[in-house]
């Protein structure tokens, strides 16, 4: 029977029960006991925090853009330029959050 969910020892008959980290063919342990758990919780939470911060800043930018449009339409060009500066600074913050660790995933 070739069921796709057949046990590992039947899917990979050349891997013996005694195979493990010492087996040079095994580069990754794959699913097993504890599979799905975070292996690097600190790195992962930092990345999640960066993403959450960036999303928060973008929400602030959406609000800022409405203010800029409103001020421009009302004729307050100076205030509109201050708002545009706020948007650019916010973008730089998001850019920093993005490039702070290029190798992260």
């Amino acid at each position: 029977m070739t069921d796709v969910n057949r046990p590992v020892h039947r899917r990979y008959p050349q891997i013996r029960a005694t195979s493990g980290y010492g087996d040079p063919r095994i580069r990754h342990t794959g699913p097993g006991p504890g599979a799905g758990a975070e292996q690097e919780p600190e790195r992962s939470s930092k990345l999640s925090a960066r993403l959450a911060l960036a999303l928060t800043v973008v929400i602030g930018q959406l609000w800022g853009l409405t203010v800029v449009v409103d001020e421009w339409m009302s004729g307050n060009t100076g205030t509109a330029w201050w708002g545009a500066g706020f948007l650019v600074l916010s973008f730089l913050v998001v850019l920093g959050l993005w490039v702070i660790d290029p190798k992260d995933r």
Binding site: L51, A54, V57, V58, Q61, G64, W72, F91, V94
Partner: peptide, 25 residues
């Protein structure tokens, strides 16, 4: 998540450009 971060940064850049364009008239 890093891809999402890149997407968010792109959106942020677009909003910044839009704000400058609006202020420019």
């Amino acid at each position: 998540r890093r891809d999402y971060l890149r997407i968010v940064a792109t959106v942020s850049g677009g909003l910044a450009v839009g704000g400058v364009a609006v202020a420019s008239g």
